[in-house]
Design a protein around this nucleic acid. Structure first.
Lengths: 184, 184
DNA sequence: ACCTGAACACCGTTCAAGT
DNA sequence: ACCTGAACACCGTTCAAGT
């Protein structure tokens, strides 16, 4: 298998790199021609690798979701090793907010977290989130009725760069107040 | 002044009505041709009344903001008459969530609440919100650090119909928990 | 097999011609 | 003054021709 031509592989990588860069900077409505030019290929080539713009965007968004999943699993590993869950949770939220603030694709990724798009990545994300929530609740650092779905919902509605940075910070603070009882 | 031809007035009204209907139902990316057809005019006529699609959408969004301002002022009037502020605030939030859930234009209106778009309507909105917040704080039904800007921020991030209705309800509940101390 | 780029379809916008 | 609808520009997508 994989009798794949070398130029094809190079082109695909180049396309993804170009798309990631332009989408992050200028948003999800960059022209396909622009992406092709930045990648140094013709539009037709772009469409050979990604049959539709949605496919290309999804590929990038999926990458971001994967990064999110990794961050969550790393956090969970530290908790499994005996660390406290609450700082992991707030750290995650803050990291997400920062990404979502400066990268349009990250925002799209966050918005898809709770929904049923993009393969089983979200399943993994939700599974880890559930374990994190359970751990945090054992510590008493989340209200007992707060669920993983609640956290996903909040991540979904994290404001992007349409809201100025200090307001984003404040939003997180409020979100935390909604899920964490005041320190005893 | 106002030597305005009767058909022009009729057409304008018809256009706005058509746009409101289609935008509410199908979102902000309805075609201008579709709106023109629904209004029973040619595209050129549409563009004579609204030089750009943004203008047309803004007109509708501004109407929604006006409705929001009226609801807020009515709530404030009841508080001025001696009523409690907290139920007015939560009622407002719930009403907004319902609108934003079924009307795409309402969602856009809510998203513009804190920002500096669309004339002085938002100034009025913020002024009233500030009075409401002050009243609620005198009752002790909001955390002392919660501001009108916070409430606007939350309204901005109210999830629209991309999130299913029960999740929207839950979101509001969490938002309220972020701003209201538990009942004494 | 894969790449190229001219061509098509769609939608926001314009403008010459009508009344 | 205002309306009409054919025409233009732009962008996502396709496809005949190349290698």
């Amino acid at each position: 298998m994989s009798a794949r031509r070398a130029d094809a592989a190079r082109n695909q990588a180049s396309i993804v790199r170009a798309a990631r860069k332009l989408v992050a900077a200028r948003g999800l409505d960059v022209g396909m021609d622009d992406i092709a030019r930045e990648a140094g290929v013709a539009v037709g080539t772009l469409y050979r690798h990604f049959p539709t713009k949605t496919d290309l965007v999804n590929a990038i968004v999926a990458d971001h979701i994967e990064a999110i999943v990794h961050a969550m699993e790393a956090a969970m590993a530290r908790v499994d090793a005996g660390g406290p869950a609450l700082p992991e949770l707030t750290g995650l939220l803050e990291w997400l907010a920062a990404s979502v603030g400066e990268d349009h694709a990250a925002k799209a990724a966050a918005t898809n977290l709770g929904s049923e798009t993009v393969l089983g990545l979200e399943a993994r994300a939700m599974a880890t989130l559930e374990r994190l929530v359970a751990a945090a609740q054992r510590e008493g650092s989340l209200y007992p009725d707060v669920t993983a779905a609640d956290l996903a919902l909040l991540v979904n509605t994290l404001p992007g760069d349409e809201v100025p940075e200090p307001a984003r910070r404040r939003w997180i603070q409020l979100a935390l107040r909604a899920v964490c009882p005041p320190r005893g």
